[in-house]
Design a protein around this nucleic acid. Structure first.
Lengths: 201, 201
DNA sequence: GCAAAAATGGACCTGCAAGTCCAAAGCTTG
DNA sequence: CAAGCTTTGGACTTGCAGGTCCATTTTTGC
């Protein structure tokens, strides 16, 4: 029951999503009007409602999915190859670098409070993102346990949950205070404690 | 140049702020209309603009301040007395209990994305809250260092930053996934690593 | 090359929620 | 007790942003 889309149509749709995402990152969800998206992407109102018949909510959901994917893609290939301490550090550096560059623009922030309540699906998008993110970290920890770099008693899931929380909180604090300290501290101290786990046994 | 307010006036103003805060907690910032606040607090439009001449933004800012204060008050007296390991655990339990009870209602969430951009002052409110919060944690760590329960080499500020990040991220994940795991894991693992620091020396 | 379907443009409608205004009631104070 | 405030109520205005509609152009497939 998916509606037919020509190649040109798909391109336009993608352009709209990307443009809306950028606009939202720069100015915040609630400041962005459909007109802004139209202006930025060179489209008309007819097109918006052609590709997103349910209107703004549907567009927002598409943006949410787009941004959620992007978050993980931006961490590759590091995130999927946490197989040595240098690799972990490279990943850490990538995260810091990425969020520092992004500054106070936030792809997720909007999704949470705003879209989270609006579209019931947006909640699911965020949950899914966090699940995938945590799974990747867990796998990294398990791999390090298999090579003896992390103590076997460490509960990989729990440690990954804590690390993910530290990252999210670090980003949140970057967003609200403009400082990167918290993200760095959370990453460094949590990773250090994983490392210490190896010696502790 | 503060405008005169009789006792009755102050009571009304406070009632409006408290009612608006509750409404926002329950239904989200962007779902709350002035009419909702009026209905809940039994006030008229005239009153709203009498006490908040700048309109909705000014009210939102007042709510932000109110909620920010509440967040810290809810952690007392534990937060200001992190002077022994049992005290730390009591604080940890209070946090978990409080946020578990609060579920997916979020006092801060709205402040960040939404009001954060709207009112320039809301940003400052959040920054101030985080600063006070982190300061309290730092003082707790310093105290534990003074009694030898935490190793002196631990960078108290950095550790507090990491812990605060873990808490914020834990709450964020509770908000988006509905699960308390992350908050618990972040608190437990971070506090444990502070504890381990004493032995490590 | 021609019908059918998809893509595009933009004028128009509509509802709603913030904000305005003023008139009436209630304190409170000399 | 009266004058001057603060407080209150609610009708009215206004602007705007989301959404509707349809006419036109372009693409697709046979």
């Amino acid at each position: 029951m998916t509606r037919a889309l020509t190649r040109k149509g798909e391109a336009t749709r993608a352009r709209i999503v990307a443009g809306a995402a950028a606009e939202i990152r720069e100015r915040g969800v609630d400041e962005v009007r459909l007109e802004d998206v139209m202006a930025r992407t060179g489209t008309s109102k007819g097109q918006l409602f052609h590709y997103f018949p349910e209107g703004k909510d549907e567009l927002l959901l598409a943006v949410a999915e787009h941004e959620a994917d992007q978050v993980l893609i931006d961490q590759e290939p590091m995130l999927s190859n946490l197989t040595s301490w240098p690799a972990w550090l490279a990943w850490r550096d990538r995260l810091v670098e990425r969020y520092l560059a992004q500054g106070m623009q936030c792809p997720l922030n909007g999704l949470l409070g705003q879209a989270g309540r609006r579209a019931p699906g947006a909640q699911a998008v965020v949950t899914g993102l966090m699940g995938r993110w945590q799974k990747a970290i867990t796998e990294g920890i398990r791999h390090m346990q298999s090579t003896g770099d992390i103590a076997p008693e460490v509960d990989a899931d729990r440690a990954a949950a804590a690390l993910l929380a530290g990252i999210q909180g670090g980003v949140l604090l970057l967003l609200s205070t403009g400082r990167i300290d918290h993200l760095e501290a959370a990453l460094d101290l949590t990773i250090d404690s994983l490392r210490a786990g190896a010696r502790a046994v």
